[in-house]
Design a binder for these strands. Structure first.
Lengths: 156, 156
DNA sequence: TTTTTAGTTCTGCCACGCGAGAACTAAAAT
DNA sequence: ATTTTAGTTCTCGCGTGGCAGAACTAAAAA
């Protein structure tokens, strides 16, 4: 009851996704856990199943799961009469992740406009360019909700 | 001719921007160089001016400048009868940076759809959720050029 | 020809993050 | 009461990255 078997294809996909996630700052172990929970034939896996499938130490498994939970990338469910926790990805997070990234990028707008305000008036060309960037970010910020609305409308 | 004086406000803004940039994976020294070139009263600064203003070692300065140039965050110009190079930010990069990030995020779509294809059919609900994410990303990908066009049209 | 300029490259140190393994713990099962 | 389960926490070592300082280099100036 605890030996998750992964096909070569599944392993490959875990590693492939891993590369992406690691590039966005998450650790190898965490990345693989995310991958596993996305490719595994069962959607909810226990600590030991995860540990076994990925060949991680208990500490690595524990830490990966806990930080992923902190960032709400995963959750767990429990089953009556069973002490184990069953972990699963929060797929929906993807969409809000997107928004988060978007917003984070756009929060640079604040700093950029502060910089713009503080700049010497002696460099009008430069300042105008900078103003354009701020403007662009503002525009993007406005558009975001519209696009989301459009998406919701489309899927009906 | 080589002592860039920074106001407290300027220093503050450099550090503030630094925090943001470091979060997106760039090193403190590089982040500060970016900041300096954005807040300084002169738009083009020499190696030694940068080094002096930020109190960096020559090696740190050299490495920061070179990697920033590799990623096209900055460039330099030269002046006739002057051996020094004058470094400046490429502000326009911001917009294409935005696109790059956007695309990078959306390139996960490929992996997600591969995962979806490889998944067991025994978890239809999960698969449907995953399919929605893929769909969402596809939609966003389509929208991107439209938004850009809109921006261009607006600024006329 | 030697000296200065404008950097680059090398060496070494320190801090940090990741993950293994072992020791520990709290609850449940026996 | 003790043993097992389901993890958590601690300690350690390893690899990496960032930076300083010093040695180096290529071109220009003197």
């Amino acid at each position: 009851m605890e030996e998750i078997k992964l096909t070569e294809k599944q392993k490959e996909l875990i590693e492939k996704l891993g590369v992406f996630l690691e590039r966005s700052g998450i650790s190898p172990a965490q990345a693989r856990v995310m991958g596993l929970l996305l490719v595994a034939d069962r959607v909810e896996l226990t600590f030991d199943e995860i540990r076994g499938a990925l060949q991680l130490s208990k500490s690595a498994t524990s830490n990966a799961l806990n930080t992923l939970m902190q960032f709400e990338k995963i959750t767990y469910i429990t089953k009556t009469g069973d002490r184990k926790r069953y972990f699963k990805t929060v797929i929906a997070t993807q969409k809000s992740d997107f928004q988060k990234r978007f917003k984070q990028f756009l929060s640079m707008k604040e700093i950029y406009s502060q910089i713009l305000e503080a700049r010497t008036p002696d460099t009008p060309k430069f300042n105008a360019e900078l103003a354009q960037v701020v403007d662009f970010m503002e525009f993007m910020e406005e558009q975001l909700p519209e696009i989301f609305a459009k998406w919701k409308a489309k899927k009906k």
